[in-house]
Design a protein around this nucleic acid. Structure first.
Length: 650
RNA sequence: GCCCGGGUAGCUCAGUCGGCAGAGCAACGCACUCGUAAUGCGUAGGUCAGGGGUUCGAAUCCCCUCUCGGGCUCCA
């Protein structure tokens, strides 16, 4: 037949189709399963609707719903359904943007009379959405000129603004305004592609309402945002909801109360934590190990006060660049203003500057668990991960320009090694460059520092992603991003190169040439902050700290009261070997005491009864639920010792 | 800081129409002495976040403040 076209599949196979055939036809010709899973197509590298006629000679890939791209399409289409439902339920509502995001989508609206959605509205909206899905409305692509587009959305100011906008991202490319129509009444500006019909959707759920600024600008109108999640199948949706439950189960704020680790008393103030004995112990163990490693790594330990005169932060530039993040000054005597310190660097700099320095001293590495205070906006404080008073495991390395590359490389190695000892081992690196407008120093120095960081990162055999404009005001940074036990990414360590502060404080050392030179400074924190890292570890381990960090490592339970003496002697032996042990009396049934141990996530619960007293053994219960009877105490001790060395949990 | 939703016993949560403040768990006491995830009985525990207002009467309705959560913005 003359009226046919030939396209190429991704694997290079040619395929003949009748002229005018679209990707949906192609999928159907390949197989029913593919046709069912197809949501869009990639034609010569560009995503299009399944209904778009295929050009002769094109390379075509079917986008299926169980891929990241496919879910993107599903979510985007579901967002349109959400918009239609809201516009039906709230006549006169304005709709803004509704993109797919990780795990779902959102849509921003402005309701008539400045009304807001309530949680109850979500159920109503969802119900309406399900009707729309059931109706099987088609997504029909329309292309308009710019003026037609403006006319089409005459009563939709946000859509008009998008069309008029210079950044032509949402369906207004090359003078052509594309839109997708579901019904004679509902059409939405959109670049596409979309699923062919609303009946291809369904595994979705509206999650929450929130406020959001138009275009993310706090000076512009605040819109009402609805978040939803959408998946290719009911099962994938359920799995996602289960992951959310799992994250909730691990929430460090919840576990902090349950395990009696820390609290945020209202009387102290928002974002200011107190650590209880058990949390304090874990924290001390974390710090002690870090201290030991830093000592071995050539760091020297310093201390600095929590407040200082205004002038220090004028010199450092903090008052110029970071004032909104600082607590207001404390005024004493006559007009003497003191600030709570938001960062440790100026203090460490003064230690460097306290006398003349020789090149022989460099690199000089000054370390401190330095407590800093930052005035965080009231809406952003969050558990231990975003607080107003925090302790950084902070160090500043002063070195020569020549030493910088090697220092950065060994530093990154040191950082990753240490983090692995805390149980994190899935990393990638992020390089943050000069922030727009909000930076000190010339472009040349920034370039040089950025390049040095990039080079060091390149040697690490880890993925490196760019974060343009994300640096601090005084220098670019590398941050180590770690994935936790359930795959969430946390920004941990940061390493920043700084040419500015040595300049501002006029730091100098005497070189081998007997000339004065200016050192380079590297700021680095591994945990970021002790509080935040603590919270991350709680979530990573779901509160079940590995043996070396567990506040109570072993609990000994006598079966009856008359086993008390033996239980105490076992506890004493373990304690003498350096373990944190407690023995509980038999005032509750054994089952209840076992249960309590599990809930407290104690690594080992030992049960001792008649057999054990007779044989000098213990019954070993680990957290995972394994039970072993008649274990000689020495064997158990050896097991503890082995486990401690590898820093692993059960 | 902004938008929305919360705050009732240590924890989780009920509390109807504005009419005596409740439960389970935890705590404490007594009994039970038990071999693997909750023994029984009893006792105590509250300025219903705080302040103001409406009302004969407020946990409940209104206002303000504090605080928590979800977002926006910001960020370690």
């Amino acid at each position: 037949m003359a009226d046919s076209i030939t396209i190429t599949l991704p694997d290079g196979t040619p395929r003949e189709l009748s002229e005018g055939a679209n990707a949906g036809d192609l999928a159907a010709s390949i197989g029913r399963g593919l046709a069912k899973a197809a949501v869009a197509a990639t034609v010569d590298g560009k995503q299009v609707d399944l209904t778009t006629p295929l050009p002769d000679g094109a390379t075509v890939a079917i986008v299926t719903s169980n891929t990241p791209e496919g879910r993107h399409v599903l979510r985007h289409s579901t967002a349109h359904v959400l918009a239609q439902a809201v516009l039906q339920l709230w006549p006169g509502a304005k709709f803004a943007i509704g993109p797919p995001i990780e795990d779902g989508f959102y849509y921003d609206f402005e309701l008539p009379g400045g009304a807001a959605f309530s949680d109850d509205d979500l159920a109503r909206i969802e119900e309406r959405m399900r009707e729309i899905v059931k109706e099987g409305q088609p997504f029909v692509r329309e292309e308009h000129s710019r003026d037609e587009g403006l006319a089409l959305f005459a009563d939709q100011p946000y859509k008009r603004e998008i069309i008029e906008g210079v950044d032509e991202t949402e369906g207004a490319e090359g003078g052509v305004v594309s839109a997708y129509r579901n019904t004679p009444e509902f059409v939405d500006l959109c670049r596409g592609p979309h699923v062919p019909s609303t009946d291809r959707l369904g595994a979705f759920k509206l999650m929450r309402v929130a406020g959001a600024y138009w275009r993310g600008d706090e000076k512009r109108p605040q819109l009402q945002r609805i978040y939803g999640t959408a998946w290719e199948s009911r099962q994938a949706l359920e799995e996602h909801l289960h992951r959310l439950e799992e994250a909730e189960r691990r929430d460090h704020r919840k576990l902090g109360v349950e395990l009696d680790l820390f609290s945020f008393p209202d009387e102290i103030g928002s974002g200011l934590a107190v650590f209880h004995p058990k949390g304090g112990l874990v924290r001390r163990l974390m710090e002690d190990y870090s201290r030991r490693r830093h000592e071995e790594g050539g760091y020297e330990f310093v201390n600095s006060p929590h407040i200082s005169k205004e002038s220090l932060f004028q010199i450092s530039g903090h008052l110029d660049w970071f004032a909104e993040g600082m607590y207001p000054p404390i005024e004493i005597d006559e007009g003497n203003r003191y600030y709570l310190k938001p960062m440790n660097c100026p203090f460490h700099i003064l230690i460097f500057r306290s006398r003349q320095r020789s090149y022989r001293e460099l690199p000089l590495r000054l370390f401190e668990f330095g407590t800093v205070y930052r005035y965080e906006k009231s809406g952003v404080v969050h558990g231990l991960t975003r607080v107003r008073g925090m302790t950084q495991d902070d160090a500043h390395i002063f070195c020569t320009k020549e030493q910088m590359a090697e220092e950065l490389h060994s530093l990154l190695t040191f950082v990753l090694d240490l983090l692995r000892d805390y149980g994190l081992d899935d990393f990638y690196l992020e390089l943050s460059t000069k922030p727009e407008g909000k930076a000190v120093g010339g472009g040349e120095e920034w370039d040089e520092a950025t390049e040095a960081l990039r080079e060091a990162a390149g040697k690490m055999d880890l993925e490196l992603v760019m974060d343009p404009g994300g640096g601090a005001f005084y220098g670019p940074k590398i941050s180590v991003q770690a994935k936790d036990a359930i795959g969430r990414t946390w920004q941990l360590s940061t390493i920043q190169v700084d040419f500015q502060l040595p300049e501002r404080f006029e730091l100098e050392y005497t070189g081998a040439d007997n000339q004065r030179h200016r050192p380079i400074m590297i700021h680095r924190a591994l945990f970021g902050t002790v509080e935040r890292f603590f919270g991350i570890l709680v979530e990573h381990y779901a509160g079940a700290f590995p043996l070396w960090l567990a506040p109570v490592q072993v609990r000994v339970l006598p079966v009856r009261d008359d086993h008390d003496g033996y239980a105490a002697s076992v506890a004493d032996r373990l304690r003498a070997a350096g373990f944190r042990v407690e023995a509980l009396d038999a005032s509750e049934p054994l089952g209840a005491r076992i249960r309590r141990g599990k809930l407290e996530k104690i690594p080992y619960v030992l049960v001792v009864g008649d057999d054990d007293v007779a044989g000098g053994t213990v019954g070993v219960n680990d957290r995972a639920g394994n039970v072993e009877r008649g274990v000689p105490v020495d064997d158990f001790l050896a097991r503890l010792a082995r486990e401690l060395v590898v820093r692993a949990g059960v």
